[in-house]
Design a protein around this nucleic acid. Structure first.
Lengths: 226, 226
DNA sequence: GTCTATAACTAGATAGAC
DNA sequence: GTCTATCTAGTTATAGAC
């Protein structure tokens, strides 16, 4: 026998998550009231606190629902990359940046990716910690992989460059449209995922491969032998 | 004779701007109430509406106060770069990225730079338009300069790459601390402005200089000879 | 120009009937 | 599980005394 009550509960839950995701992406967390969410979802105001406990918990549930599958796809590509011999820097960049950028190309995913990109600059410390927790194991695996294709880079230099990669990706995910400052959409459509991916790959690969100067800090400490 | 009333008014105005800047940077626009601002500034709640008219107008005044001098410094460096012969890509990157990053190194400036970086992903369309207006003439000058040092790049490729530069800079300004995902502060201190500047310069210069493949689209048209 | 007091509204959360 | 009604607290903005 079906438990209709449970089914209804699940539908309500999902409807709230969908509406919250869309409204958060458009107006931000503080700009979205529970009243707006429940109205858009076609459910009762009290349902949010019944199903999630609080607005904060709802926010975290919105992220948890989508980050896990995205990161699974990243790790799957990373494994294929390792199986193929660990030599291809462009392929590794794609394993990391491809899943979120491709998700951004889908109508449903675009909302979430924008929300995720924006969340990195959100002042909510608790949310940041929750999201960092979902990323840590993935980042750790990719750090090791990048270190393997770029073995000549000293650790700090590698970490700075990975920081630039992660930061640039975060910016692109946020959907912040600074491209409007630079070019018309005719010349460069920031929503053209394939164009974006190939250009990003080229740009970032070149940055990661940039030669390292002898002196690493402001003051060179010791001249290297070879 | 001094107009004491006017002097007091100016002090109140500045106190409000200072407090608003600090609180906006820390808690975001919506997370900061006029009550919090006026309390921090040591002025009366009603003073905000007297001096600025509304919260929205206060937000825009906070930006206008600091963006203009920052962009003037950028243009001054651009002129020195042009006077020096227009050949040095690293110097041009510094003219563009140096002023905001150096401002971020000062205690007072850091707050504002974080706020500015975050503002790009803020959902407030009116604010975005206001800020874009302050940037447009500067971006236009720099576009021309970059086109001059990178004359072999087709326009769309140049614009994509400049978009990456601007986006990465926006991320760095936001102070979003994704570096915490990658490395301990011991190895790479994201607040070390000089280290950041030199690393960014190297990374971005390499990305901008990356060779352009023959085939620009998804399908290669012609096999490359070398 | 600055203050107090308050209007007018919106928020998140909950109690209790169904 | 879902609803209505309501509580408490916080918001921007303003009117009017000083």
């Amino acid at each position: 026998m079906f438990d209709y009550a449970q089914d209804m509960g699940k539908e309500t839950r999902e409807a709230i998550l969908d509406a919250a995701e869309a409204l958060f992406a458009e107006h931000g967390f503080r700009g979205t009231s529970l009243r707006a969410i429940t109205q858009a979802a076609g459910v009762n105001l009290a349902a949010v606190n019944y199903h999630f406990g609080s607005k904060q918990a709802l926010v975290e549930a919105v992220f948890a629902r989508r980050i896990e599958p995205m990161n699974r796809e990243r790790l799957a590509r990373l494994q294929r990359w390792e199986a193929a011999g660990c030599g291809d820097l462009e392929g590794l960049i794609d394993a990391f940046a491809g899943p979120p950028l491709e998700l951004a190309g889908e109508p449903r995913g675009a909302r979430f990716v924008r929300l995720l990109g924006r969340s990195y600059t959100e002042p909510d410390e608790r949310l940041q910690a929750a999201i960092r927790g979902m990323y840590e194991p993935v980042i750790e695996r990719f750090k090791q992989a990048f270190a393997r294709v770029l073995p000549h880079l000293p650790a700090p230099e590698l970490y700075w460059r990975l920081h630039f990669l992660v930061g640039l990706l975060a910016y692109l995910m946020s959907g912040a449209d600074l491209m409007r400052l630079i070019a018309s959409c005719r010349l460069c459509d920031p929503l053209d995922v394939e164009a974006l991916k190939s250009r990003l790959q080229r740009f970032v690969a070149a940055g990661l491969r940039a030669p390292v100067p002898r002196e690493q800090g402001a003051v060179p400490a010791v001249r290297r032998g070879g």
